[in-house]
Amino acid sequence: MSKKTKGPFIPLNVAILTVSDTRTRANDTSGDLIQERLESAGHKLAARVILPDDVEKLRAQLRAWVADKSVDAVISTGGTGLTRRDVTPEAVAPLITKPIPGFGELFRWLSYEEIGTSTIESRALAGVADDTFIFCLPGSTGACRTGMDKIILPQLNATTGPCNLTEMLPRIRHDPAPK
């Protein structure tokens, strides 16, 4: 597996969405981890919001960030499980214009190494919404660490080879849609 280094690092503006009925800024350890990892890597925090498990509230916030051309990516934590309250995938799905199925597949494969078959309870997903990347991670801090360190940060790094999502962003934003 070749991991050649490519040209310069490009900082992205990333919004963080914590989906929880119980977390506050004081105890949002997963949001804290995501923010710390992003800023340590050189990215910029565009916004950080905590919202309850409510499809319409989540969708409204995500739509606002997708419409904001200064936001390059959104990373959510929470709401990807199997309970009735877990609604992040349902909120995100209608906004996705291009799914990235490999994200959820790879996340569950990596997670299997850490938590075994319990990984099937995660509905982690990612996609492109118009020209904004959206990544949905589970709410556990360990799951966020796995997703950030092993998938998201390398893909949001323009120096990662042979390819990465950051170098695709200009084409995503400017390529005409097929007719």
Rank of each mutant, 00 (worst) to 15 (best):
L51Q: 13
E113Y: 08
W109M: 11
I50K: 04
V87S: 05
E114S: 13
G127A: 15
I75F: 07
T80A: 09
E121A: 05
G104K: 05
G42L: 15
L110E: 11
P52L: 13
R123L: 05
K44R: 13
E105G: 07
F107G: 09
W65P: 08
R108H: 05
L125H: 09
R48S: 06
E56R: 11
G78I: 00
E114W: 11
A126M: 11
L82C: 00
F133D: 10
A46W: 08
E121L: 12
K44I: 12
R84M: 00
D86M: 03
F103N: 04
S70I: 06
T80G: 01
L62I: 14
F133I: 14
R59F: 10
T119N: 07
P89S: 06
R85W: 02
A129V: 10
A67K: 15
V74K: 09
R123E: 04
L110S: 04
G79Y: 01
V71C: 10
L110G: 04
L62T: 06
D131W: 06
V87E: 01
P94W: 11
V55K: 12
S118E: 00
L45Y: 04
T83H: 00
D53Y: 03
V71H: 02
K57Q: 14
E114Q: 13
L45V: 04
I115Y: 01
K57A: 15
G127H: 09
A129G: 11
A73D: 09
V74H: 10
S118V: 01
R63N: 07
Y112L: 15
R48M: 10
G127W: 10
F107P: 07
D68T: 05
D86K: 00
D68Y: 07
G127S: 15
I115K: 00
V74Q: 06
E113A: 14
S111V: 03
R48Y: 02
R84Q: 00
V92N: 01
E114M: 12
R85L: 05
E105N: 06
D131N: 08
I96F: 04
G127D: 12
K44F: 06
W65C: 05
D53R: 04
K98W: 03
L51A: 14
V128H: 06
S70D: 10
A64G: 12
G116L: 08
D130T: 12
G102C: 04
G78R: 05
I120M: 15
I120C: 08
L125K: 13
A91F: 04
L62P: 11
A93W: 03
Y112P: 03
P89T: 06
F107S: 07
G102N: 11
R63H: 07
K69M: 06
G79V: 01
V66G: 07
S76P: 03
E121M: 08
A91W: 02
A91P: 03
A64F: 05
R108N: 04
H43N: 13
D54S: 08
A67W: 02
L110H: 10
I75D: 00
T77V: 02
A47T: 06
P101Y: 12
I115Q: 05
A64R: 09
